[in-house]
């Protein structure tokens, strides 16, 4: 395992631990304001503040806010990616299994999605309906469903033409057995690799929406939302931008690096084309 992949995995573990237990690192609550301590620079960097990562414009502790933000971002990333993976893969599988009009309909849906970037769709829908966390999660979850649908359809069609599926049909195996026992396991790698490609995209969509002030709404917070609040104070309170931004970037980067490594391992045709 290359060093960068090890480092990425270590970072991912640390990130998850921080999201789960980060709030215990600090005595302050993430909504606890302290007007006396507004915009204090990070104590870690020698400002003398008792807040190691500083405070925001309402004197809230950045450690606590980052921990809660990481929690939300992680939740949205994992749940959202699962939504897209399940919907997209199921549609891809159905398209390949049914062919004909079903397939045409699903692939037209893919075309429509390709003509409308998901962030545009999300903004449009968010403007139409009252924002709720569940709606947001679902919209973000749709990220990349079309990629799953296309990839899984192609992989299923190719698996269907493999000799082992023909052999199963000749044996009289039921369609359910063929799909569950023989096709799905062989398509699973494709889904897994796509999962690692899609998760950074999901994270970036959520943080972007929250950064624009249209995603996760206060008093809830997420990494993007913290950055959104810090944006107007970029020059005098850089920590509000830099810390959450680095967390998002490193999270997306680690997942991508692990994903690339995984792809090389799982796809023998790509072996030897190491990334880094």
């Amino acid at each position: 395992m290359p060093l960068v992949v090890k480092l990425s995995l270590i970072f991912l573990v640390l990130f998850v631990l921080f999201a789960l237990f980060g709030t215990y690192l600090t005595p302050y609550g993430y909504r606890q304001t302290a007007l006396m301590h507004r915009l204090e620079a990070p104590g870690l960097f020698g400002s003398g503040s008792e807040y190691p990562l500083g405070t925001d414009a309402r004197g809230r502790d950045l450690v606590a806010r980052l921990a809660v933000g990481a929690q939300v971002t992680l939740l949205v990333a994992v749940a959202g990616t699962l939504i897209g993976a399940v919907i997209g893969s199921a549609l891809g599988l159905i398209a390949a299994a049914r062919r004909g009009y079903t397939e045409a309909a699903i692939m037209t849906g893919v075309d429509v999605q390709l003509s409308l970037p998901i962030i545009i769709v999300a903004l449009f829908v968010l403007a139409m309906f009252d924002s709720s966390f569940m709606l947001l999660l679902f919209l973000i979850g749709l990220t990349g469903w079309e990629a799953y649908a296309r990839l899984v359809r192609a992989a299923t069609l190719s698996a269907r033409n493999q000799g082992y599926v023909t052999a199963q049909r000749v044996l009289g195996a039921s369609a359910l057995r063929i799909y569950l026992r023989h096709i799905l396991p062989n398509v699973f790698n494709v889904i897994l690799v796509q999962f690692t490609v899609n998760m950074p995209l999901t994270i970036l969509l959520e943080t972007a929406l929250s950064f624009l002030g249209l995603g996760v709404q206060p008093p809830m917070t997420s990494l993007g939302q913290i950055m959104s609040e810090g944006r107007d104070r970029l020059l005098n309170a850089w920590w509000l931008t830099l810390f959450p931004g680095m967390l998002i970037f490193l999270l997306a980067l680690s997942i991508s690096l692990v994903g690339d490594w995984l792809r090389d391992r799982l796809d023998p045709t790509l072996r030897g084309r190491r990334m880094t």
């Binding site: 493999q162 000799g163 082992y164 023909t166 052999a167 000749v170 044996l171 026992r181 023989h182 396991p185 062989n186």
Partner: peptide, 16 residues
């Protein structure tokens, strides 16, 4: 009525 196929590399499920 059973069959033996041409390509022995794809005739077996690689995960079974």
């Amino acid at each position: 009525l059973q069959i033996v196929l041409q390509d022995p590399y794809t005739a077996l499920n690689p995960r079974q």
